[in-house]
Write a protein that binds this DNA or RNA. Structure first.
Lengths: 181, 181
DNA sequence: TACCGCATGTAAACGGTTACATGATTAC
DNA sequence: GTAATCATGTAACCGTTTACATGCGGTA
């Protein structure tokens, strides 16, 4: 179901075939989840059945004919709804990045609140780290110390980035309504 | 199957019941994956069947009796084998953190090579980011720019941490053979 | 003609979560 | 007596990956 939303988001940018989507995503496996054909094609079928997509068969001059999918108004509605709603739980990096990638489908205010939500989640996570550290004091072994130190470093970097991004965005939204500057 | 390995690693530290494992892990959901009871108990059964664990029923004074699992020699062998072998693909944060948490089951040299492997993976990922950025130049929209910027920041932070950690570790291993300093 | 890349698709297996069921002990 | 916590377990379901099958067009 998560893969479906990402696919829908990519198709909001431009019409593509399943194969196109696969190629686009497989280079970006580190950024977002890259579905295999086994989930990609069924997802396209399902969303077409739901009326979120339309499909055109395009006879390519060279090579076999392709099925190009295009998002519908209903699809855009569903997409916006999904991006706007907060994550249920867990601060999955990929889940957040997926929404970030699809930021163009959000208004400036929505994007800002999305980043703020993330910031508060990461902050809470840092507090949890500190608490966990204090609970068992220095008694923990090397592995836990390394892991905690590591995740603390990443969380700090993330908070710093969010702070910068929010500052930049707020400056822009104060001037114009659009973010595409 | 990944959950199994993490459970095995936790039991390498000390014998625990399924419930203990669950409680330990659910506070750490941001660090590593936290399996539900529906996968936790079956995993314990499976590993017991394979001879990786033994089980003792402990009649607790207060409360119901608990099933305490203990790792076997075969279990330790399988565990070491798993931690030492490199990740097939993808630089999943949780997968790496899981191994980091279980660092105590590795020799100093093994741990160092694990960190070095991670460093080269993250480096390769940064190169990929740069290439991807140059390929479509400034043509990409806000979403992609944000996502790329964000992941670049995290990757930089991770590389910096790995560098520091490797330096610290090498200093230790030069002195003694053990890492528990 | 044999092979490779493009392009689409399906079935089985896998790993996991959700939801439920059970039962004992402690606290109100 | 009933609610909450401790503790273990199972079955149904869900989304994904893996592996396979198909066919077209270019090329060696």
């Amino acid at each position: 179901m998560k893969a479906q939303r990402l696919i829908l988001g990519l198709l909001a940018r431009q019409p593509m075939s399943g194969y196109d989507i696969k190629r686009l995503l497989e280079n970006l496996e580190w950024l977002v989840s890259s579905p295999s054909f086994g989930s990609l094609y069924p997802a396209l079928h399902a969303m077409s059945d739901q009326g979120l997509l339309t499909m055109d068969v395009v006879r390519n001059g060279n090579g076999p004919s392709r099925k190009v999918y295009r998002i519908t108004d209903a699809g855009r509605r569903v997409l916006r709804e999904w991006i706007a709603q907060p994550e249920k739980r867990g601060l999955s990096l990929k889940a957040f990045l997926t929404k970030l990638v699809l930021a163009d489908n959000l208004s400036g205010a929505e994007l800002v609140s999305c980043l703020q939500r993330r910031r508060s989640q990461v902050s809470a996570y840092c507090d949890g780290l500190d608490r966990g550290g204090r609970e068992n004091g220095e008694a923990t072994d090397l592995g836990w110390r390394l892991a905690r130190d590591y995740s603390q470093a990443l969380a700090d970097a993330e908070l710093a980035w969010l702070e910068r991004a929010l500052e930049r965005l707020s400056r822009r939204t104060l001037i114009g309504g659009t973010l595409d500057a």
